[in-house]
């Protein structure tokens, strides 16, 4: 039986993602004095992870760990679990971890729960709450194996301010094993966008933007003014106004931002399921009876073609 927590610290161009600090804060709280360590794959040092509660940081480097591959990531995670002796592994529910963790779970025979939104201590272990049916229901998950694996939805826990702590850095030599797949190209999106699932602010448009031009001239500038990621309803995606990677809802992304602005979205049950946990929801819609107003913190009943440009200008002025 292991002891303590291992946090998977994701990074992006030399900086740790916010999720690393969110998960460390939660791990320190739940560990109640048991060891908390972190693992950094394909990155150099411990950065400020020690100041956020990690007492040990395992680093895994080498040619196989520069770009995500499931085989290499599983090998690195398995090595870090063994080296840390952790009983609970917390990782952000990113595309990469959601791809690697099922393999890891099957390889080491550890129970795994994904897209967890709450974690609490119970009977010497940890129990989780997680959404089901894209958030139309929630359930409690208990893991009955010696090592428990959780991927946690970004923005589920607040990060804590740094303290004076520092971490011991342990470089692990990991054999990535024979690669079963090979990345031959990476196609970047236009611009530098935060993925919807990690975004702190989202502006989404619906079918009533009427066209791709409508989406590009109303929704994207409003998102840009806020530093937000653009999203869309299924109807807008199916109409070809924007790519499926921007769809919010049950057959798109389930999102959890601090601020969600829904423009011209009526609020089909599948869309509400995908965004209803947002902390603050603003909706702009000409139909006062639209279901979206039922989950909104603030609503404006009116013509988005007039309101969006005004709001974009007002936000630009306010955030200057």
């Amino acid at each position: 039986m292991g002891n303590g927590f291992l946090v998977v610290a994701e990074h992006d161009g030399g900086h740790f993602k916010k999720t690393a600090y969110e998960l460390l804060a939660k791990a320190v709280e739940l560990a109640a004095g048991a060891p908390v360590s972190a693992v950094v794959i394909g990155g150099d040092g411990a950065g400020d992870l020690g100041a956020h509660g990690a007492t040990k940081v395992f680093t895994v480097n080498g040619p196989a760990f520069g770009h995500y591959s499931p085989e290499a990531w599983v090998a690195a995670l398995q090595a870090a679990i063994t080296a840390s002796g952790a009983a609970v592994v917390l990782a952000p529910a990113s595309l990469q971890n959601k791809d690697a963790f099922p393999r890891l779970s099957a390889r080491i025979g550890a129970g795994y729960a994904t897209e967890v939104t709450e974690l609490s201590a119970a009977g010497g272990g940890v129990v989780a709450r997680r959404p089901q049916y894209a958030g139309k229901a929630f359930s409690t998950v208990q893991i009955q194996s010696p090592v428990a694996l959780f991927t946690v939805r970004p923005n589920s826990f607040p990060a804590k301010p740094a303290t004076g702590g520092s971490a011991e850095v342990v470089a692990l030599a990991v054999d990535a094993g024979a690669a079963l797949t090979r990345v031959v190209a990476s196609e970047a999106p236009s611009g530098d966008v935060v993925d919807l699932t990690e975004a702190d602010r989202i502006v989404s448009g619906g079918r009533s933007v009427k066209s791709k031009e409508g989406f590009d001239t109303l929704i994207r500038p409003l998102a840009a003014a806020l530093g937000a990621t653009a999203g869309a309803s299924r109807a807008a995606v199916d109409a070809g106004f924007c790519p499926h990677s921007e769809q919010v809802g049950q057959t798109g992304k389930v999102v959890n931002p601090t601020l969600y602005i829904a423009v011209g979205i009526s609020g089909a049950i599948q869309h509400l399921a995908g965004m209803r946990t947002s902390k603050v929801i603003v909706s702009i819609n000409k139909d006062a009876e639209a279901p979206i107003f039922g989950v909104s913190t603030y609503g404006i009943v009116g013509d988005m073609f007039e309101i969006c440009p005004l709001l974009t200008d007002e936000l630009k002025a306010a955030l200057r």
């Binding site: 025979g109 550890a110 129970g111 795994y112 729960a113 709450r129 959404p131 089901q132 958030g135 139309k136 229901a137 929630f138 359930s139 409690t140 998950v141 208990q142 893991i143 009955q144 194996s145 209803r276 946990t277 929801i281 006062a288 107003f293 039922g294 989950v295 909104s296 913190t297 603030y298 609503g299 404006i300 009943v301 009116g302 013509d303 007039e306 309101i307 005004l310």
Partner: peptide, 24 residues
């Protein structure tokens, strides 16, 4: 089974929001 599910519930109701009034 290593994973056990229980305690099913509906998501918490969101508090009632506010519709803003006035001109655009």
């Amino acid at each position: 089974a290593l994973v056990k599910e229980s305690g099913w519930s509906l998501p918490p109701q969101r508090p009632a929001g506010r519709i803003l009034q006035g001109d655009n």
